[in-house]
């Protein structure tokens, strides 16, 4: 199974140099080789596994339990104005 490193790096928004790509290539190919072995197993009648735990989702009652802490949380943000978190302008 081939692995398009530049494409995956772009999807993850990771900037990688040619050298870095060359360095991780054999490591990732080792992982892919293992997956190549796994996909040989016939899973025709096997349902996809969502979780290895044989338990089901715990549900929460619909109650508001959180209070306004945005002043505290925003101390960690690089830029804040008018209660908004600021980021470089993004317009599509």
């Amino acid at each position: 199974m081939s692995f398009d490193i530049p494409k995956v790096a772009y999807l993850a928004r990771i900037a990688m140099s040619e050298e870095e790509i060359a360095a991780v290539k054999p490591k990732l190919e080792n992982v892919m080789a293992m997956i190549d072995d796994l996909v040989k197993i016939d899973t025709t009648n096997v349902a996809p596994l969502a979780s290895p735990l044989e338990q089901y989702q715990t549900l929460r009652e619909d109650v508001v339990t959180e209070t306004d802490q945005h002043v505290t949380y925003q101390k960690l943000a690089p830029k804040v104005a008018a209660d908004l978190y600021l980021v470089p302008q993004v317009i599509e």
């Binding site: 830029k79 104005a81 008018a82 209660d83 908004l84 978190y85 600021l86 980021v87 470089p88």
Partner: peptide, 9 residues
């Protein structure tokens, strides 16, 4: 809301 920046709510 803010010039040259995007504000996130």
């Amino acid at each position: 809301a803010i010039p040259h920046m995007s504000g996130i709510d």
